[in-house]
Design a protein around this nucleic acid. Sequence first.
DNA 1: TATGGGATTCGC
DNA 2: CGAATCCCATAC
Length: 207
Amino acid sequence: MILNRDFYESINILEISKSLLGKKLCTNIEGNYCSGYIVETEAYKAPEDKASHAYMNKLTPRTATMFSQAGTAYVYIIYGTFHLFNIITAPEGIPHCILIRAVQPIEGVDIMIGRRGIMSPAHKLTNGPGKFSIAMGINKNLNGTDLTIPDGIWLEEGLPQCKADEIVIGPRVGMSTAGESSNWPFRFRIKDNQWTSKPDKVWYEGF
DNA sequence: TATGGGATTCGC
DNA sequence: CGAATCCCATAC
């Protein structure tokens, strides 16, 4: 079952970030189908979040996508090389977005290996936001597309909802210039999952 | 038009 | 730990 717009429209971005764990992310790029379970997310809660591109509702050509309706893909390029995939949430006009940081491959593994150009170790195939974008064929062409339509990129129901004690919460990665919001506990991972990205200081478990 | 930095990754 | 690599936002 594909996730419909209702799933993304909540104003409570932290709840959606947790609900996304275990959901199935699917891509069909030029006829190549891949899928994987989402195992790590980070919330970016503009306008008050200094770490967000849309801090203080800043509107530029790049951030315009963030003000779109819930269930829209926001893909941007970092370090000139890596395409990072985000999901727009909240009612249209509120620039909430959730960065997907890692997935656990399900289908199309051979395609992912081919795109990444590595065979082993297997968990390094998709354990980072730049890595799984390469593996699943995600690129800037998908920026602004509708995730509720099963073409290009979309989400399906996937695994049962993670229980609170199966989720690890901590500060976000790469916060060098975000001031106070650097320490916000906006990073969510499935506990003990081997496919999550690099470890970090853990603040809470079981909440 | 010119410049500086970045929600990363990989190799040394 | 440092380079790669280039888009984007900002300043001029």
